[in-house]
Amino acid sequence: MTTPVPYPFNTDTGLDLADAYRVAQDTPGLLRVQLPYGEPAWLVTRHHEARAVLADARFSRADAQRDAPRTTPVSPIGLVATDPPDHTRLRRPAARAFTARRAEALRPRVRALAEDAVRRMTARGAPADLVEHVALPVPIAVIRELLGVPAEDRDLFRGWSDTILSTSGATPQDFLAATGSLKAYMGELLDRRQAEPADDLMTALLRARDEDAPDDRASRDELIELCIAILLGGYETTASQLANLTWVLLTERPDALAELAGRPERARAWVGELLRYVPLAASASLPRYALEDVEVGGTTVRAGEPVLVAIGAANRDALRFPRPDALDPDRDTTGHLAFGHGIHHCAGAALARVELEEGLTALARLLPGLRMAGDATWKTAAFLRGPAALPVAW
């Protein structure tokens, strides 16, 4: 068998797509890679093959007996590591409570939070760190209000999230301690909402769960893990992307902010294209195991072998998106994989789009002269790439 090559390819600094992905896309078959932890895996980089694997029931996310290829010492937990019928049962409450209609209904509140954050940053004076004052506070506030988390506990979540999503800065003991603390906290909050319902997502999840037949209902522990998945996905990914998208526009297309200031309806097109363009993850993750021999891209993946799907590379595949390295908000971005595909498609995708659209529009409208005021400082040892600090002026 082919000797695996060291992986991941992308660097922490910047948001470039490593050249090794291009080589893999242009080479017949799949590439065999070795991550820092776990067994070797096959790497999928082309769009049509990525989309096929993500939707193929012959690939399982739930093989817990394997030494999963990964960048972190401990494998992920919860909804991302399940298959039907468990996945269907566990995702059902989220699908009922986390709807596109609910996300759109939250748009005015998200807009208010984004504008308030921008005004607070402006009041402090330039230069200012956009990550600290806008990119982090807005998604934290949105997910905190959704889950009914007290404002004073905001920093707790940030610390736990940073530890859980660290790729090398945290030990297995740190990871387990942060996960345990987060589970305990979410459990207490869930019990409180069970006794005292409120107008928040956690109460909606409980109500949706209770609509299921007793044998199909998610357990308390499963709901806790679902809430943790919503927290980590709703806060960390959106915060990283809001900073990333702003950095890309400021450094590559500053004209876009002027366009958004005058035509906020263009935010949807810009966000769709930026989500396709920006390779967010430091590497492909969440392996899928072949349940039988499957032919993928000219390579036979044997039963039991893991496959990793490189979303960032697939979204920059020239066969699906012509001139993939050009930012073009007028292109058809239908089918981009930034939120995944198939049964594990991100449940919070609609809300993430709302937050990114309103965040960029607030910056464009309130700070038409927004510009970089120094070099970005990039996160290291993190699963999601992005600026740790983004100095701006206006």
Rank of each mutant, 00 (worst) to 15 (best):
H341I: 07
P306W: 04
L54E: 01
L176T: 13
R96A: 14
G272P: 10
L245A: 05
L17M: 11
A218V: 07
V271T: 03
E222V: 07
E222L: 12
A81I: 07
R22Y: 12
I224R: 02
D174T: 12
G169W: 00
A303K: 15
E104V: 15
D210G: 12
P214S: 04
R51A: 13
N10G: 13
Y185R: 14
T377H: 10
A198E: 08
E355K: 09
H336T: 14
W394P: 14
P172M: 06
E115T: 15
E104G: 13
S283H: 07
I343W: 01
V392C: 07
V354M: 08
R91G: 03
R331D: 00
E295T: 15
V392L: 05
A178D: 02
H336V: 11
D174I: 08
L136N: 11
P368T: 11
R220I: 13
G262Q: 15
V248Y: 04
L260C: 09
E115G: 15
T99A: 07
A68N: 03
V5H: 07
I343M: 14
L226Q: 03
S166W: 00
L165T: 11
D129L: 05
M121H: 03
V296D: 02
L360P: 02
R46S: 03
Q65D: 15
L156C: 13
F383I: 15
R316N: 02
L249M: 06
A50R: 03
G374T: 06
L79F: 01
R92W: 07
R66Y: 03
A178Y: 02
A126S: 12
A290R: 09
G159F: 03
L356N: 00
L130H: 04
W247H: 12
A52Y: 08
H341E: 11
P329W: 01
D199H: 15
F321L: 06
F321D: 00
P8V: 09
E355C: 05
T299G: 06
A318S: 13
E152Q: 14
N244E: 07
D63M: 07
C227P: 12
A376Q: 12
A303V: 14
G340W: 00
P139Q: 02
R102D: 09
R353E: 04
T251Q: 14
L35E: 05
R89K: 11
A94S: 11
G374A: 11
A350P: 04
D221P: 06
L232K: 04
I224V: 15
E49W: 05
A218M: 14
G233D: 04
L17N: 05
P139E: 00
G38T: 10
G348R: 04
G340H: 01
A376R: 06
L337F: 02
A256C: 11
D162T: 11
R353I: 03
A195F: 06
G29N: 08
R192V: 15
S283L: 06
E355Q: 09
I230M: 06
R385F: 01
D129Y: 02
D325Y: 02
D26V: 10
P287R: 03
G304P: 05
C227M: 13
E115W: 03
A195V: 08
L15Y: 04
V296W: 00
A114V: 06
V131E: 01
A350V: 04
A198N: 05
A393L: 10
M202R: 12
L308W: 01
W247G: 08
R102A: 06
D19M: 14
R144K: 13
E357F: 03
L245Q: 08
E188P: 09
A128D: 04
A198V: 09
